[in-house]
Design a protein around this nucleic acid. Sequence first.
DNA 1: ATGAAAGCGCTAACAC
DNA 2: GTGTTAGCGCTTTCAT
Lengths: 352, 352
Amino acid sequence: MGERNRKITIKDIAAEAGVSIALVSFVMNGKSEGKNAYRVNKETAERIRSVAERLNYQPNEAARVLRSGKTNAVGVIVSDISNKFFADIARCIEDRAYKHKYTVLFGSTDENPQKLENLIDVFRNKGVDGLIVVPCEGAEQTLRKLANENFPLVLLDREVPGAELSSVVLNNRRAGYQVAEVLVRQGFRRIEMVSYSMNLSNIREREEGYRSCMTENGLGEYVRIHHLRHERLDRIVEVLRDARSRQVEAFVFATNTLAMQGVTAMFRMGWQVPRDCSMVCFDTNEAFDLYHTAAACVSQPIERFGAEALDLLLKSIEHRDQPMACTRVVLTPEIVEYAGAESLPEVVSAEV
Amino acid sequence: MGERNRKITIKDIAAEAGVSIALVSFVMNGKSEGKNAYRVNKETAERIRSVAERLNYQPNEAARVLRSGKTNAVGVIVSDISNKFFADIARCIEDRAYKHKYTVLFGSTDENPQKLENLIDVFRNKGVDGLIVVPCEGAEQTLRKLANENFPLVLLDREVPGAELSSVVLNNRRAGYQVAEVLVRQGFRRIEMVSYSMNLSNIREREEGYRSCMTENGLGEYVRIHHLRHERLDRIVEVLRDARSRQVEAFVFATNTLAMQGVTAMFRMGWQVPRDCSMVCFDTNEAFDLYHTAAACVSQPIERFGAEALDLLLKSIEHRDQPMACTRVVLTPEIVEYAGAESLPEVVSAEV
DNA sequence: ATGAAAGCGCTAACAC
DNA sequence: GTGTTAGCGCTTTCAT
């Protein structure tokens, strides 16, 4: 009771089991089995294991890390961990990493390359074995340098053009095409896109998808992409109002955030969605889902994003010596189409 | 180019600056200033600093941790990091911790006490200096033991009854009272509550709040609390249908998840909210907010949750020697009242 | 004002 | 099969 709660070390186990610390280390690391192993006496090994169990031995991570240079930790750097899309991915990565005995450090950049650089520094000092990064604009240099050092790195959600980096991304072009196509099929012609001015690969490709969908459907003349600054989303009101004055009938929102901002603004201005104006967007969201606000949403395979990214990273950590293979995983979007608010079963039956 | 990219250590700095590693250590740790300091020559210190800068010296965390026993990392264990409420708090903690040069490890329990215990073990092995924990049912023992060991610990969102543990929680009783009161003021009488069967302090207090509000308003006879099992939320349909058959006019949902499930179920059953049935709930949410689905929401001071919890934890890490003071921070809820869907400015103007 | 040196707990090469 | 031992990079006590 009054005993100081000293941490049990490998030494204590060795003493208690009457063997050397080396033996304990081997046994604890499973080096007593397998081919290239110091073959330890089966009984000795068992004795050591039981002592460790009894004393509730917990190896000291810091020592192990210092000695081996491996932390069994990876860093995940996203734009904003409180954003639903990233929070969901984070959760998947966390669970999966845990199964592989890895822990995860999270960080948010707020699309600020300086913050990204800081986070990378901090995480590397902490000794993470690798990084999963959602690159932001202006981070190209930093990331390329990292990769040149042969540091295990996997890009998520977006790519860095012209860099040979592993990445897990959506087929954004296709998603943009297909989601816009829903509007076209519904008979809309004046369809415009609301997007970010940030130069991000995923955004640019979504725009491309929209553009080719329009062009291929003979609506090239209506193509118009509004680029909003990330810090000035309030400008969306002007964009919408202007579009409205040009009889725009429907919008493609390049991200969930933009869509939410857009719809909120529309509500404030007295338009009802989708009655007065239709829209499609990327990612689902409880509001749009429940009220069928969107005519369609791009549903991203969250689980696979997390799984593929982590697996890729772990593989590249395993093969740190090799000159770093660059794998590109492109996931297929799913388009969730809603029937339209007027046909929401519940609303109809309630109003009749 | 072909150079192996060896990490710069304190030794390199020492050699380059022509001093001993001890001096470098002192300078790097700012022990050259202040009162109880080895007074280092101002110029020597400057020289060391400049060399460190030039060589881009990054101290090795593992070594520092091994030696000092301090990791400058804290663990945050919540129910589910992908849940908006916790994701938001996580983000606040992350930002704030970062300013204090701390990093944060996140983990999710899924309300499973076994997972909680595992996570605590893992995080402690990693050597976190302290933990912020959202306790789940059945974790009382584990947490009490932790605190008995004088391990820095702060509870978040919920408390462990009968344990002297620091915590940051909402005044849930008051929140429950006030949010139910909105319905009462709107003239509803048959108001029932949908809650969890889990025995969690916050949930229980919310129920208490609802109950006393009803009683004090002479509606005691209508008090009814439905307890759903966390894993069987689909049961909510039966609960709602049954309530409906008893002419229940409004619901208080004990959590955001319950509310979302509830409203979704109502929609499926063809009821329109709030036309056919009113509701209030805890936490805001884009859907309810945008469409004024809820008559009112309890808005929790997310920022303060994060800030208070982290500050409390850091303080208790700082004073690990002292016998652990137990502080309880109770935050005040804010009730956000919506005007009702029929008076949504935009919908009205659009429908006229 | 500065340096030497003793470890923190662990891994792994090497000796027996 | 098992033990010895040399560090990993750092902090900190104690000499000088």
